[in-house]
């Protein structure tokens, strides 16, 4: 028994907090599970809608395990099941050929290595690289934001990519 009163998930602020706290990790988890961003997004939304519908029954302390359980089960329900299976198969076929970039299979381990490689970039390269690749800013915008020349941005991007590739090449 704890003295602190249980947080009520039915309250919008609490629900939003829960969402902010777990949504990214959950989406990532779902992506690694299904290897498909659209499915991950769908299941994520369904999961939180379900949480909202059952907000009075789910205890705040157990919300994380609830979310993951629902999300894992949701895969069976989701209408796109067949589509996902198809994507899977497509992915495997093309992975063997390693050609068409649209169907490149990205292993979760590989993705984690890429993240580590980005994290280990020199600070200046990483800053530019994250603004460009993660926040999808144009080089010109980045140059303005950081008060550097576009050429400098381009150089840092170029070097960063080579560095990442080399790091992964050594790892794998």
């Amino acid at each position: 028994m704890q003295n602190e009163p249980e947080k009520d998930i039915c309250k919008t602020e609490v629900f939003d907090t829960v969402f902010k706290q777990y949504s990214n990790d959950l989406k990532r988890h779902l992506y690694f599970k299904y290897r498909d961003l659209a499915s991950a997004e769908d299941v994520l939304q369904e999961t939180f809608i379900k949480l909202w519908n059952n907000c009075s029954k789910v205890s705040y302390k157990k919300v994380k395990s609830y979310l993951y359980t629902v999300a894992n089960n949701a895969f069976l329900d989701i209408k796109k099941h067949d589509k996902v299976v198809l994507e899977h198969q497509k992915g495997y076929v093309n992975y063997n050929k390693t050609e068409s970039p649209e169907f490149l299979m990205i292993e979760s381990e590989y993705l984690i290595e890429v993240e580590n490689a980005i994290a280990s970039l020199p600070q200046k390269q990483r800053e530019v690289f994250l603004l460009s690749r993660m926040e999808k800013k144009k080089y010109r915008e980045i140059a303005e934001m950081l008060d550097i020349s576009i050429k400098t941005v381009e150089k840092r991007m170029h070097d960063a990519l080579i560095r990442i590739k080399d790091k992964l090449g050594r790892k794998l």
Binding site: T98, L104, V114
Partner: peptide
């Protein structure tokens, strides 16, 4: 081939890490 795979990874990471405001 490495670069292609990396570019795809960046896109996925961007998707996975972007703020979930739209989703919410």
């Amino acid at each position: 081939n490495e670069y292609l795979k990396l570019r795809k990874s960046f896109d996925i990471l961007s998707e996975l890490n972007k703020p979930m405001d739209d989703t919410l």
